[in-house]
Design a protein around this nucleic acid. Structure first.
Length: 585
RNA sequence: GCAACCGUAGCUCAGCUGGAUAGAGUACUUGACUACGAAUCAAGUGGUCGCAGGUUCGAAUCCUGCCGGUUGCGCCA
């Protein structure tokens, strides 16, 4: 539940609540209902806050414009309100800029703005994201999941929701067997000393190709026998392949950790498939013994036809489990180990059917939390020539994207500082900007929309990108430094009279609401758009109004304070998206 | 066949819990650095919101049907 935390809207809803009570004593319209209904007029000349009177029309049995007029007549005077304006069915409020500035800039510079209680009674939530397979290539597709998941965790936490983050790597299954098979029987090359995780991914791709090529040849049957043996050894936890699995698995995990570290992502809990496999089968055998599961064509599972979810196989005819089997057990572990009330799965939309099945199975076997399990789906990342596939050989490995981006940024923008800045700083800023470009690019489009990844486009860094926003912060930081900004100095907020200053103040005041809205809708785009709009506004302001060269000292100080506030909000907003803002770039 | 998602400017996308004049980026044309950082800013060109109905004071937004595209739909994960 959202609390009233926006200064302007809280003020207006309080005044409106009293006026509505006075005008229509019989109508029930709570202060928080009013707060929620407030919107913004099309432009600031019409006011900063708009109250639409449509919702009241039915109960008051009166046309909205008349209601607006009646309410206006019953409004009490308030020192912070300049005037109210009737605009048809809307009642608009013009707040005094000075009051707006004093409150918003004051709260931002004191830091209180970012520590407000924004919501209450939110459920304890777990977010699972990043489910890469070991022994396979980590590619740009994984990046979308990682950026989205980590931003969402930050959004939920900022808005006051207790959130546990978790990752679920796939460290067993046929893909592992194929990779180990190739390593043992076919690979002629020595194991490299470095980057073994990436190398392993290539081994898998080669293995997959070779096995496919040998289908229909005399080798097919022996290959299959060898793969079965490998899988058996890993499951039974002994034999040379089990040892090889343990060793190679670590190479992939090291690569994952490297990627997570680059992305500044940290998980509260790592679940591995191998960790839930055995228990998941036990759980299913229990359920089977209780008669909850049925057998069908040799497999054991649950009939979900009445929910239009077909048959969910939980024990294959060879006695082993499926991915659904493990997901049921994993859910049980999450509920019991952490006592969560809500469980979010950030997984691409091809798994929609799978999760519907799993959630239904959980519900049927008696987990109440099943109704609060949510598959947050997103569309996949494709390349200009279609879906990524190892067969096509058109996979863009994650580390290629990262190093390409960092290299381009260094040569195009940072090389000019060489000698002036330390090499370490140049590398660090290149990493931060690459992070900004990649992360912002991954989460600025809606989850439901496919991303066609084009390396050249991504390297351009023009327009709506992470570095555009980082540049805003760097410029402000440089300004504050140059003019010795002091956050404790007295400021005459009456000096902020420009239209763009007002627009910036209103924008700044909306920050917390935007993040709460993102948390409610589990979306990142509202925040990315917001930050871009804030950045654009500031850049216009910067071009139009000289801050350092203001007419008088008071104006300069007031403008600096405003600029500083924009910088703080920008930095905070980017941080929520997982993006660092360098002090200079 | 069934289901989910997508269809808005040349291209990439916002706007979708109905509300004031449909917005950005990009591309293209033009202008602004002896300047608080030009990784920037300003201006212009560009739209039957896939199509057809319906709901109502009001629909890009909600409902129905159709068209086009993507992805799923029992022993891979």
């Amino acid at each position: 539940m959202e609390l009233n935390h926006n200064y302007a809207n809280s003020l207006v809803s309080k005044l409106l609540f009293a006026a509505i009570k006075k005008s229509y004593p019989e109508v029930e319209y709570s202060e928080s209902q009013i707060y929620e209904s407030l919107s913004a007029p099309p432009n600031l000349k019409m006011g900063q806050v708009a109250f639409p009177c449509f919702p009241l029309a039915k109960e008051c049995k009166m046309a909205p414009p008349m209601i607006a007029k009646t309410i206006q007549e019953n409004l009490e005077n308030d020192a912070s309100v300049e005037e109210t304006k009737l605009a048809g069915p809307y009642l608009n409020f013009v707040l005094k800029k000075e009051a707006l500035a004093k409150n918003i800039i004051g709260e931002i510079s004191s830091g209180n703005f970012f520590t407000k209680e924004l919501t209450k009674d939110t459920p304890k939530t777990m977010v699972e994201y990043s489910q890469p397979n070991t022994h396979k290539i980590l590619h740009v597709g994984h990046m979308r999941n990682l950026c989205l998941g980590s931003a969402l965790v930050n959004i939920l936490r900022y808005s006051g929701q207790e959130t546990i983050s978790t990752t679920y790597p796939g460290d067993m299954g046929t893909h592992v067997a194929k990779c180990l098979w190739y390593l043992k029987y076919k690979n002629p090359d020595p194991v490299p000393v470095e980057n073994r995780g990436a190398w392993l991914g290539q081994m898998y791709a080669t293995a997959n190709q070779l096995l496919e090529d040998e289908i229909g040849t005399p080798n097919e049957e022996s290959n299959r026998k060898q793969l079965t043996e490998i899988i058996k050894q890993i499951e039974n936890q002994n034999g040379e392949f089990y040892e090889l699995w343990k060793e190679t698995r670590e190479w992939s995990i090291a690569l994952m950790k490297q990627a997570y570290s680059w992305a500044n992502v940290d998980f509260d809990r790592w679940f591995f498939e191998s960790e839930v496999d055995e228990d998941s089968l036990k759980l299913m055998k229990d359920l089977q013994a209780k008669g909850i599961l049925v057998e069908d064509q040799g497999a054991v599972g649950m009939r979900l036809d009445e929910y239009n979810l077909g048959f969910c196989i939980l024990i294959k005819s060879d006695g082993t489990g499926m991915y659904s089997t493990k997901d049921v057990e994993l859910a049980r572990k999450k509920f019991e180990e952490f006592g969560i009330q809500k469980s979010i799965y950030v997984v691409d939309n091809r798994q929609a059917f799978h999760f519907n099945q799993v959630f239904k199975v959980l519900e049927i076997i008696g987990f109440e939390q099943a109704k609060d399990c949510f598959h947050l789906q997103y569309d996949v990342v494709e390349l200009p020539d279609g879906a990524m596939s190892s067969r096509k050989g058109n996979i863009v490995p994650l580390m290629d994207l990262i190093s390409n981006m960092e290299h381009t940024i260094t040569t195009n923008y940072l090389e000019k500082y060489r000698g002036d800045w330390s090499d370490e700083e140049i590398d660090k800023v290149a990493r931060q900007l690459a992070g900004g470009a990649i992360k912002y690019g991954m989460i600025r489009v809606d989850n439901n929309r496919k991303i066609v990844f084009n390396m050249e486009e991504w390297l351009k860094l023009d327009g709506e990108t992470g570095p555009y926003l980082q540049y805003v912060y760097a410029r402000i930081n440089s300004l504050c430094h140059k003019f010795n900004y002091d956050s404790s100095a007295q400021v005459d907020f009456g000096k902020l009279t420009h239209d763009l200053e007002e627009a910036l103040l209103v924008k700044l005041g909306n920050f917390n609401s935007i993040v709460v809205n993102c948390a409610k809708q589990l979306k990142t785009i509202h925040l990315t758009s917001y930050l871009f709009e804030l950045g654009k506004l500031f850049n216009s302001y910067y071009a139009e109004c000289s801050i350092g060269g203001a007419d008088d000292e008071e104006t300069k100080l007031a403008r600096l304070a405003l600029a500083y506030s924009v910088g703080e909000v920008m930095k905070k907003g980017l941080a929520i998206l997982g993006i660092e803002a360098p002090a200079r770039m």
